[in-house]
Amino acid sequence: MTLCEVEMVVISYSPYSDEPKVFPNNGVAISTFRKFKELSTSERSKNMVTREEFTEKRIKKLEKNLLKVNKENTVKEITNEMHEVLNGKNISLNMEPNNRNDLSYVIKKNLELVREAMKKNIGSEGSTSNVPQSTPSTTMTSMMP
């Protein structure tokens, strides 16, 4: 059987059976083992790893993913903090300087995105610059009976 361009067989032993289960079948398994045995020693061991090596690689990959997720969560937390500040929340005096710097960075980046979006919308249908704006007096008048 070929899986991802790799020829493979599966031999499964069970405490409930005297004979192992072979997938896809015995003939394919024997053929695959013969081909493997005919390879040079360097070719046979090229992609082999010990259980410890595999585990170490897996741990490093998971740690890298964890670091990435932690960074994404930090950005989300700071973005939430930015929204709270923009809605009137005071910045805590106890906030660490690094967090203040991160908050400032996120606010600046979001302002840049808003400016870019506004530049793209100038002169397009999405622009509201030509729409008459209501003044506070007309708004109050329209609200009164």
Rank of each mutant, 00 (worst) to 15 (best):
I107M: 00
T79G: 05
S92G: 04
S127I: 02
G126F: 12
R58Q: 15
M48E: 05
R51K: 13
M143D: 11
G123Q: 04
E81D: 06
F36M: 11
H83I: 03
K89T: 01
M118A: 15
N65A: 13
N121F: 10
F33I: 14
L86Q: 02
K119H: 08
S104W: 00
Y16R: 13
N98I: 03
R44V: 09
K109G: 10
V22L: 06
K68V: 07
P15W: 05
K119E: 11
S137N: 12
V28I: 09
G123P: 09
P145K: 15
G123N: 04
N110Y: 04
M8D: 01
P132R: 14
T50G: 05
S12A: 11
E63S: 07
D102I: 00
F54G: 12
K57T: 07
E7R: 03
P97G: 04
C4I: 03
P145Y: 14
S17H: 07
K46A: 15
R58N: 09
E19W: 09
K61H: 12
V114E: 05
N47F: 11
K21Y: 08
D102P: 01
F33E: 05
P15F: 07
K76P: 06
M48Q: 13
S104D: 00
S12L: 13
N80R: 14
Y105N: 13
E125T: 13
T138A: 11
P20R: 01
R51L: 11
Y16D: 14
V22S: 07
M82Q: 05
K46V: 04
M95L: 06
E81C: 01
S31D: 11
K76I: 15
V10I: 08
K57A: 09
N130M: 10
F54K: 10
N65I: 13
L86H: 00
N80V: 11
L86T: 02
L86D: 00
